[in-house]
Design a protein around this nucleic acid. Sequence first.
DNA 1: GGAGTGACTTTTT
DNA 2: GAAAAAGCCACTC
Length: 105
Amino acid sequence: MMEFEQRVWQRCQEIPKGMVSTYKEIARSLDTKAYRAVGNSLRKNPYSYLNSSKVPCHRVIKSDGSLGGFHGSKDDPRKAELLRKEGLVIKDNRIKNFKKFLYTF
DNA sequence: GGAGTGACTTTTT
DNA sequence: GAAAAAGCCACTC
């Protein structure tokens, strides 16, 4: 069932710079409710944003605007910095006005 | 084939 | 607004 994961990763790449998306939106765009499976796939994705720029998983956040716990550490500023560089405003591990930057498929 | 896991979401306390 | 519970799907052991 790799297709599902690939589709997820593809959505990540589809997110334009300076925008973010949520697990739920991705799942919805795939016509499924597997928001958990989305996270599960991203967790194991072979193109982790640390190793490759192919899948900017850092642009995928939770539906309430928080970044979630990527890469295993919640205190890692790299992701927040990355997003901040793309024009997003991060406050206490939350995206400010993230709805404005929310990219829906 | 069943039980456990996870970078989740939504509703209810 | 924070915390807990229930519900969801794919993947791994």
